[in-house]
């Protein structure tokens, strides 16, 4: 199997187990540059595990991940070098509580990417400005609302100019109004051509941003394709059942 020339990320036959539990059981997909791939699936279906594996925070048990044509699952790979190209936003924000918003954002550009403090600050402040958080630059994360914290987490990932952005259920800790705020942010990024892999429970959002939608069930991608096709005309019985349940829960 050879990867198509425009694929930024290519995953083949990925397996991950925790003890006797098989969480990922042969996952394969490709993410072309400037596109968004969205994963949906029940809680515990392995979405977070997959994203953590892509970021090398989880050691996979089998399969290959290629980023920019380089096999990052190789044994002798330097994870720090790989992560320079990736941005990750966590479900629970994971901001550093002992640093101000600005320090959270500039830590990696200064320490990892070698920017001067002035350059890093300038870039961080312009991003904060853009997301309406300019006046929060010197606050500590605990003093921000959930939506603001999540946007800071997104900015922190963006400030490093990642080639690929990994977003893990970035709205699940937020109320509906804040969800919209954050989702608008992601849609803007998508329009600017950011390549993304997203895990979410928000079907409406999935439909809006996904170029490719994958339904994860039993450790496998049961169905994938255009978002409108998978959500409105699911072919597989598992997908139909999952979407029916989501529907009855009022999340569609």
């Amino acid at each position: 199997m050879s990867l198509s020339p425009s694929a930024l990320l290519s995953v083949r036959d990925l397996k991950k187990t925790f003890g006797s539990e098989v969480v990922l059981d042969g996952i394969s997909f490709e993410v072309p540059v400037h596109t968004a791939t969205v994963f949906i699936g029940a809680s515990g279906s392995g979405k977070s595990t997959l994203l953590r594996a892509l970021n090398l925070l989880e050691q996979v048990d089998d399969g290959v991940i290629e980023l920019d044509g380089e096999e990052i699952t190789a044994v002798d790979i330097d994870p720090d070098q790989v992560r320079r190209k990736l941005g990750m936003v966590f479900q629970a924000f994971n901001l550093f509580p002992h640093m101000s918003v600005l320090e959270n954002i500039t830590l990696s550009p200064i320490k990892v990417h070698g920017l001067t403090r002035d350059e890093a600050n300038e870039r961080a402040l312009s991003l904060l400005e853009r997301f309406g958080l300019r006046e929060k630059a010197d606050q500590y994360p605990d003093r921000l609302s959930g939506g603001q914290q999540q946007r800071v987490a997104i900015i922190r990932a963006l400030a490093r100019n990642p080639r690929l952005l990994l977003l893990d259920e970035i709205t699940s800790a937020l109320d509906p109004v804040l969800v919209n705020e954050v989702l608008l942010t992601v849609r803007e990024l998508k329009e600017e051509g950011m390549t993304m892999v997203i895990a979410t429970h928000e079907m409406g959002f999935a439909k809006q941003v996904a170029d490719q939608l994958c339904y994860l069930h039993g450790g496998k991608i049961v169905e994938s394709g255009r978002a409108s096709d998978v959500i409105d005309r699911p072919k597989e019985p598992e997908t139909q059942e999952f979407l029916a349940r989501v529907h009855s829960a009022g999340r569609l």
Binding site: L57, R83, M88, A92, K111, V112
Partner: peptide
Amino acid sequence: PSQRAAARSLGLSHFQTLRHVVLPQAIK
């Protein structure tokens, strides 16, 4: 551990993670 995960995702090395993220919180 989520603090380490966040720091490593930002590309910080093991030592940088200790120096800038883990130790300041631990010492406090």
